[in-house]
């Protein structure tokens, strides 16, 4: 089963006003569990709205969002008939069964934000505590965990994001931009979400800062086998870190599949206003000028391989 499934989801902003706008238009997509999926698209393509739908911060105007096959916005009446047959409700009267089911749905909903962790754009603005460790502990504390467990999770999250112990007792406001970003990321990772969703996690950072953030995310994904979704404009980063890619444009999904499948249509991506990796652009130039190179090259490693085969033969 797909970890996340969007079933004909639409989302309309400010419905019924002159500012009405469709952020998502009949989107159906599947996200595989246990891998990193990239969502690319220019600003206003509906990416950020989609993130908020995934953990219940926003509800779709129509359609369903399924997490492990469970409709996260389900209403007691939708599931009543089906759930009544479950053993846990079998002995109950219809009224108390309905009540129990409603309670269960409410509880599941409340826990949703801990299962699907959301890292927003420029997340450093969410820092507020006196020390880094207390800020990271905010999420776990809201989960109602025991102090010892909280402490352990803070250390674990700090390790994933490469936050040294010397930083843990500092004020988050004294850190550099890149460090703040990592603390904010750790604050979400500390909840150990099954699904980690990130909106432009490296925006505005310098190259070293970018690498730190992406390595932290990859570390977490590898060690915990969780599902990661990265929303980004940067196809260079997507090519480097993602297994699957979804391309959005004008509130719709225009392509989804493995990295190789999606990037094979690189021209189409360029048309939607995204910047293609520089290396891919170079390969296009070379092909246009008659060099026999394979079509889908989007990392430096792949380009080195291809050109070595081409140029290296003669060099010997």
């Amino acid at each position: 089963m797909d970890k996340l499934y969007l079933d004909h989801v639409s989302y309309v902003y400010s419905a019924g006003t002159p500012f009405e706008q469709k952020a998502l238009d009949d989107v159906t997509l599947a996200i595989r569990g246990g891998c990193i999926t990239g969502i690319i698209g220019h600003t206003g393509s509906g990416k950020s709205t989609m993130m908020q739908l995934l953990n219940g911060l926003a509800k779709p105007s129509s359609g369903k969002v399924l997490l492990d096959g469970y409709d996260i916005n389900c209403d007691v009446n939708d599931v009543l008939e089906e759930w009544k047959k479950l053993p846990e409700y079998s002995g109950m009267s219809p009224r108390s069964a309905k009540k129990a089911i409603a309670a269960k749905i409410k509880k599941t909903r409340a826990k949703l934000c801990f299962r699907v962790g959301l890292v927003m754009q420029y997340p450093e603005y969410q820092l507020f505590e006196e020390t880094v460790s207390r800020d990271i502990a905010f999420g776990p504390r809201n989960m109602g965990l025991a102090e010892e467990e909280i402490r352990q999770r803070v250390l674990e999250a700090a390790a994933f994001t490469d936050i040294g112990e010397d930083l843990l007792e500092k004020s988050p406001f004294d850190l550099s931009g890149g460090q703040k970003r990592r603390v904010a990321l750790a604050g979400v990772i500390a909840m150990r979400p099954e699904v980690l969703v990130l909106d432009e996690p490296a925006a505005g950072l310098d190259p070293l800062g970018r690498t730190f953030i992406f390595e932290g995310i990859r570390n977490y994904q590898r060690k915990t086998g969780s599902t990661v979704l990265i929303v980004s404009h940067s196809m260079e980063d997507m090519a480097r870190y993602c297994d699957d890619v979804i391309v959005m444009s004008g509130a719709r999904v225009i392509r989804q599949g493995s990295r190789e499948e999606v990037f094979a249509h690189v021209d189409e991506l360029a048309e939607t206003g995204l910047d293609i990796p520089q290396i891919t652009h170079l390969m296009q130039l070379l092909r246009a000028r008659g060099l026999p190179l394979p079509e889908n090259i989007y990392t430096v490693d792949e380009a080195v391989e291809a050109l070595r085969a081409l140029l290296g033969l003669g060099a010997k």
């Binding site: 801990f114 603005y125 999420g139």
Partner: peptide, 16 residues
């Protein structure tokens, strides 16, 4: 807009 963003970010960390 900023207030809304911050509220959402803290809600995503389980703030009530």
């Amino acid at each position: 807009e900023e207030t809304e963003k911050i509220m959402n970010a803290q809600k995503a960390r389980g703030a009530n």
